[in-house]
Nucleic acid binder design. Structure first.
Lengths: 224, 224
DNA sequence: AAAAGTTTGGTGACTTCGTCACTGAAGCTA
DNA sequence: TAGCTTCAGTGACGAAGTCACCAAACTTTT
C-alpha cells in the first residue's frame, strides 16, 4: 500500500490536506490520462464520464451558438478541476458547451462513482469541490458582466495582456480573439488597427506583438 | 416522531424519493422562514447562512456593475433551490451578485452544516443538489449566449411573453425591463415604441399590455 | 387643492458595435 | 508557379448603447 505522499494530489490546493485513506482512494481508483492538443474532451453528445483534475496543460470551455459563432466561457489550468462538467453530466446533458484540450493535457480522471464516494466520505473533498464550483460560477458572472457592460477596446486590451502572460507575443488569429470575446472578427481587426496606430502593438499574420505594455495596461484598467 | 409524509419535502422533484430517515433530518433540522417582498436575501457583505428551498414566491438573482447598471442572472421559483448560493458562500464571498425576494417568500432553510451532513449521507440528496447546479449553470450559459448573440427585439419579445405568463399584462417599468436584459432603458423604450407601432402591445405608465400575442411569438421564435 | 418633488417615459444626436459583401495578401499544396 | 485556403482589411450600413435633456404622470408636502 502506498503512503500517498508526493503524489499528484499535493499539486491541488485543497486536496493536499485530505485524510490519508481518502488520498489512497483517490490514487487507487483514478487513472492518469494523456490527451493530445485539440481533443474534444466533452461536448454535445459526448458527456464526460470522469471528473478531470488537470496536472498539466489547459482546457478551454466554449459555447457554440446556432449561428456558428462561439464564445470562450473559461479555461481550466493545471491544478484546477473540470468540476462544472461533473454537475452537468448528472442531468441536463443537452447543453451546447464543449471542452477542448488547448495543449497536450495530463489529468487525473476520477470516475463518476468514485467522485460520489469521495463526496460522501470526506468533508474536505466536499469543500474542495464546492470551492471549485464557486470559482467557476463567479467567473461566469464576471464574463456576463464584461459582455454586457464593458467596452470592446478595454476587453481586448485585457485579453491581450492575459494571453501574453509574461511574454510579449500572442499567437492567435483575429478570428480566435473574436471568439475569446464573443464578438465579430471585423471588430477585432479594427481595434487592433487602432492599437497599432497608437503604437501599442505590431501585427503579423497569426500573431500580435505587444510593444507598449503600458498603453494597453492603462486602457485595460480604466474602469468604465 | 413524524412520519415525514405530506410535508413540504414532497413538493420538490428529486427530494420526494429520499429515504425516510433523511427526510426526517431535513424536516427536523430545517426551519420554515417567511421573507417579505424586496428583502435582500444575500448579497455583497451578506453571505447566506442557509440553503433555501423555496416553498412559495420567487427570488431574483442579479448582478450589479460598478457603473450602477444591473442585469438579472436568473430566478428561483417555488419548488427550486438557491443552490448556487451555497457554493459561493463556501469560498469566494466577494462576488457582486445578490438575491432579492421578488414576492413574499416562504422557504425551508437548511443550515450549512445540515446541508453538509445530508450531502454526506444521502446519494439521492447529492443527486438533487448536483441536478440543481446543472440547471443553474446551463441557464447561465444560455444567458451568456443571449447577451452575446441575440438581437434585442427578439430578446425583449421573449421576455415579455415570459413575464406575462398566461396573462397579457406585464407590470414593469422600462428601467426594470432594461435590467432584465442587461441593456439601457432607452433601448427598451424604443423597442416598445416599435412593438406599439406594430400593434402588438399598448403601454401605460409602469405596465405593458399584450394585444397581439402572435406577433411577439413570431419574433421571439425567429432564430437568428 | 396647489406646489414641489420624484419617477417614468420620450427624443435627438452621436458613438460604438455588429453585419454584409467584397478585396487582397500570405502561406500551403500539388 | 498556379491554385487553393486561411487570414486580414475595408466601406457601407444597421443595431445597440450613451448622453443630455424634456415632458408627463404619479406622490408628498404645505
Amino acid at each position: 500500500m502506498t503512503t500517498a505522499v508526493n503524489s499528484w494530489i499535493d499539486r491541488f490546493q485543497g486536496l493536499s490536506t485530505l485524510e490519508n485513506h481518502i488520498k489512497e482512494i483517490l490514487l487507487n481508483r483514478s487513472t492518469i490520462v494523456s490527451v493530445p492538443a485539440n481533443t474534444v474532451i466533452f461536448g454535445p453528445g459526448k458527456a464526460p464520464e470522469n471528473l478531470l483534475l488537470l496536472l498539466s496543460g489547459s482546457v478551454r470551455v466554449q459555447q457554440l451558438s446556432e449561428a456558428g459563432r462561439e464564445i470562450i466561457l473559461y479555461r481550466v489550468h493545471a491544478g484546477e478541476s473540470c468540476v462544472l462538467t461533473t454537475a452537468c453530466l448528472l442531468a441536463y446533458e443537452d447543453y451546447s458547451a464543449e471542452g477542448i484540450a488547448e495543449t497536450d493535457v495530463q489529468a487525473a480522471a476520477i470516475p463518476r462513482m468514485v467522485f460520489d464516494d469521495l463526496i460522501a466520505q470526506s468533508e474536505k473533498f466536499r469543500r474542495f469541490v464546492f470551492s471549485a464550483y464557486s470559482k467557476r460560477i463567479t467567473d461566469l458572472f464576471l464574463v456576463i458582466e464584461e459582455i454586457a457592460f464593458q467596452r470592446m477596446d478595454m476587453r481586448l486590451a485585457q485579453k491581450l495582456l492575459e494571453l501574453a502572460g509574461s511574454g510579449n507575443r500572442v499567437a492567435t488569429t483575429h478570428q480566435q480573439m473574436a471568439a475569446e470575446l464573443g464578438t465579430a472578427r471585423e471588430v477585432i481587426s479594427r481595434q487592433l488597427r487602432e492599437f497599432q496606430r497608437r503604437e501599442w502593438v505590431t501585427q503579423s499574420r497569426g500573431a500580435v506583438e505587444i510593444i507598449n505594455r503600458k498603453g494597453l495596461e492603462v486602457l485595460a484598467s480604466s474602469d468604465g
